[in-house]
């Protein structure tokens, strides 16, 4: 495809001689910006890889790439998604292998180029190639409902809808859920796309006091199954400061445990839903189980 000048891809862990594996494309999306898409992409991707799966996290946020930074790979970016889409680089040249988890790779977004450089045909080809190499392809969607967000979700088999317990985030999530059911490849083929709600920045104490939408409220409004509740935690900022998914920077922390549980549910396990807490005392115990 790229001519004889390019060597065959290096030995990526997921590679299996071109035989199709049951790869899953997962889009992490939300509509609204700043709700935790990139943080969640990094944490979910890392947690999946930590469970032994071959995972690539793909940044679709062309022009405003940040997944590389959150993953701590910003200094290793040479080629990006658009280089691969346009045929300027081979996929294997653009993939960056994580230094902490062997089975985790990142495909960064371009920082400077035109958004229109991401073509539907090109994305389809790259996703197809990734399906041959990995078990999970986790796509970090840009905010908004425009072309970039639509491209990120187009090939998805499953979607994680990241939502804050806040009115504008819930409204935008509702729009995104509508788009998942109408504009994606699966929707157009009349197939279902599995949608999961990930509630982030949740504060159980404030919800219990009636100051914040409760899990039940958000679930009732959006009516898609809940995959996890990530508590508001200083560990999340600490992780991004360090350039590490929170499941790697502090696996024992409350948000990391919540992401690990979410990833187990993503893989079909049934677990009791709870909001993990870092608070020791009575307070933490009190609110630990107060969820839907």
């Amino acid at each position: 495809m790229f001519g004889p000048n390019f060597p065959e891809p290096g030995p990526f862990p997921g590679q299996n001689g071109g035989k199709r594996r049951m790869a899953k494309v997962l889009v992490v999306t939300s509509g609204k910006g700043g709700v935790g898409k990139t943080t969640s992409t990094a944490a979910i991707g890392a947690a999946l890889a930590q469970s032994g799966k071959n995972v690539v996290v793909v940044d679709f946020d062309v022009g405003l790439r940040n997944l590389d930074l959150v993953m701590g790979a910003e200094r290793r970016v040479v080629f990006d998604l658009i280089n691969v889409v346009q045929g300027d680089a081979k996929l294997s040249q653009a993939l960056i292998r994580d230094k902490r988890v062997e089975t985790l790779s990142i495909l960064p977004a371009s920082q400077t180029r035109d958004k229109d450089a991401l073509t539907p045909d090109g994305v389809e080809r790259v996703i197809g190639e990734l399906r041959d190499k990995f078990d999970w392809i986790v796509c970090d969607s840009p905010a908004g409902i425009e072309k970039g967000a639509q491209l990120a979700m187009h090939h998805a088999d499953e979607a994680v809808v990241v939502t804050n317990p806040e009115v504008s985030s819930v409204r935008d999530s509702d729009r995104i859920i509508g788009m998942l059911d109408s504009t994606t490849m699966r929707a157009k083929k009349g197939e279902k796309i599995a949608k999961h709600l990930l509630l982030t920045r949740y504060d159980p104490a404030r919800a219990a006091r009636g100051e914040m939408l409760r899990t039940e409220d958000v679930l009732e409004i959006l009516s898609i199954p809940l995959i996890g509740i990530i508590p508001e935690s200083e560990e999340v900022l600490r992780a991004s400061n360090l350039g590490s998914p929170v499941t790697l920077s502090n696996p024992e922390s409350a948000p990391a445990r919540a992401y690990f549980d979410a990833v187990r549910r993503l893989q079909g396990e049934t677990l009791e839903m709870q909001v993990p807490s870092d608070k020791k005392g009575l307070f933490g115990k009190l609110f630990k189980r107060r969820v839907a």
Binding site: V167, R171, R175, G178, G210, E211, E220
Partner: peptide, 21 residues
């Protein structure tokens, strides 16, 4: 008086989203 802003948020969302859907 602080109690109850979340129920207001829920009700507003339910009405709005019913229309938007």
């Amino acid at each position: 008086s602080r109690r109850g802003s979340a129920p207001v948020a829920r009700d507003r969302l339910q009405i709005l989203l019913a229309h938007e859907r």
